[in-house]
Amino acid sequence: MTVQTARHAALAPRPAPRKWRPGSSALTAITWIIGVGFFFPVLWMVLTGFKSEGDAYTNPPRLFFLPTLEQYESVFARGFVPYLLNSAYATIVSTLLVLVLAVPTAYAVSIRPVKKTQDVLFFFISTKMLPVAAVIVPLYVVAKQLAMLDNIWTLIILYTAMNLPIAVWMMRSFFLEVPKAIIEAAQVDGAGLPRILTQIMLPVVAQAGMAATALICVIFAWNEFFFAVNLTAARAATVPVFLVGFITSEGLFWAQLSAAATLSSLPVIICGWIAQKQLVRGLSMGAVK
């Protein structure tokens, strides 16, 4: 087979498409330029965060300047830490809750795919299509009546619901990869479902699957703004809400704003870079690997 294709390739008028050619260095240069261009607003954000406000407002914009940590100090002086803690708390607790709920659900829908479990999967993905704006009014009214406005647990519950469908679909795609033979062998040995789940399936999928799912949930929960801005105030407000404070004063504080934006984005950028390989799978809810 390989010999045959090699001979065919030798006869072919053009080289195989993926081979390195000298002419492709131009293409490489273009790719690099576009890549850096796309990244440039991010780089600019980081740079501006180390400028003094005077250096941030120049025409033409200044690429070289004397770096300062002044802006980062100002961001913390402005009371950034409580927002950071709220975000961290809401993100971590909701992600743990998502895993606790999604793992058994995903297990149940992947172990034997019949019509009913397909319906359940269908239901989960359809909740993702319900515009959040459509439920914000009752959520606000109910939260108000239960005295749950400006309470971090309101966000935790909503973020859990928001990420649950993604996690179920994603965990399912990992469960489907566990060889059937392992499960059958365990059943023959008389292991019950809970034991199969905790002692056989979980260790197999734990490392890759749960970590990747958790990272995706962290990204969405950390960046969430709509619920946060509408349902929280002084006590439970998260990092995106902190950034709202810059709309009104933006004319004066670009460098500080950039420092705040950098700090706010950093956790997710790190998570995303680590989870690069799993990002597609998570974003497509397990459909694309």
Partner: peptide, 14 residues
Amino acid sequence: ITPFLIMPVAGALL
């Protein structure tokens, strides 16, 4: 891929 990871609120502000 980084633009996708920037917090949307921060990206919009920038």
